[in-house]
Design a protein around this nucleic acid. Structure first.
Length: 259
DNA sequence: ATGTCGTTCAATGAACGA
């Protein structure tokens, strides 16, 4: 089974590339983040024509996640139990389902904006709720993984120049501690191969020639339990998808599994 | 080859988030 995660930065703007990528990549299950559309605007019909079922948790302009599968899509759960919400409202940042024998989540962790911003406190609370929600499945014998845009670089090496991140989110000890807490439930970081350069960056800012200069970050992560990790045969970042006109600012992370 | 992109609201750009 080939499973992938991709922050598409608007599923409607990305639709031609999304359909082409699914056709060409041989992906069985895709975890999508930042659909940036209302649920009814999600291109389920176009995906169905390619043989994929869809499950969507989205509500408009911001955020939005989805699961797309051609190997089954059962027991869909939208949202995160205990989601702290932001500014009085719960946001569509999580969806989970059973696909081809694996239980998978597609998550879009809050950005945090600045360490002294309310959004940062929200981000940490959101991580706590995620940990509580997945701890049971992490210990289970069924292959289980949480895939998505975590908006945290696990180590200093996971950003192009750590000296430029002083005082910034995505690299703070508290955010990294939140990742460590997730791993302590029984999940492992499935680190993909970079297809070019040394570090498997997954995101490059649109601005200031981020991609051509490889000013990237590894913030799209695959956290799998022991059964999932044991089944992994390969993992890589499809940086080709970041190239050219009409690309998302994130590249897909692809994982091959012997299940 | 790549010196932002995408959505929304109200509008022929600005505001906002990332």
């Amino acid at each position: 089974m080939r499973i992938a995660t991709w922050n598409v930065n608007s599923v409607t703007a990305r639709l031609p590339r999304l359909l082409a990528w699914l056709e060409n990549s041989g992906t069985d299950v895709l975890c999508i983040q930042e659909t940036k559309c209302a649920a009814e605007q999600f291109p389920a019909d176009e995906l169905r024509e390619l043989g994929y079922e869809s499950a969507v948790n989205a509500n408009g302009r911001w955020n939005g996640v989805a699961l797309v599968s051609r190997v089954g899509l059962d027991d869909v759960v939208k949202g995160l139990p205990g989601d702290p919400g932001y500014d009085g409202a719960e946001e569509p940042r999580a969806i989970s389902a059973t696909c081809g024998g694996a239980r998978v989540w597609s998550v879009y962790v809050p950005n945090g904006r600045e360490p002294d911003h309310a959004h940062y406190a929200y981000k940490l609370l959101w991580f706590e709720a995620l940990k509580a929600a997945i701890a049971g499945d992490a210990q289970g014998s069924r292959p289980f993984a949480v895939l998505g845009d975590y908006n945290v670089a696990p180590a200093d090496e996971d950003v192009w120049d750590i000296s430029l991140f002083e005082g910034a989110t995505h690299v703070t000890p508290a955010e990294r501690a939140a990742l460590a807490a997730l791993r302590e439930t029984g999940l492992s970081d499935i680190v993909p191969r970079p297809l070019k350069y040394d570090v498997p960056f997954t995101y490059w800012d649109y601005r200031q020639l981020g991609f051509p200069k490889n000013r990237g970050m590894r913030i799209d992560l695959v956290y799998g339990n022991a059964a999932f990790q044991k089944a992994v045969t390969d993992a890589y970042v499809d940086r080709e998808e970041r190239k050219g006109k009409g690309a998302s600012d994130h590249a897909p992370v692809v994982v091959d599994l012997d299940i």
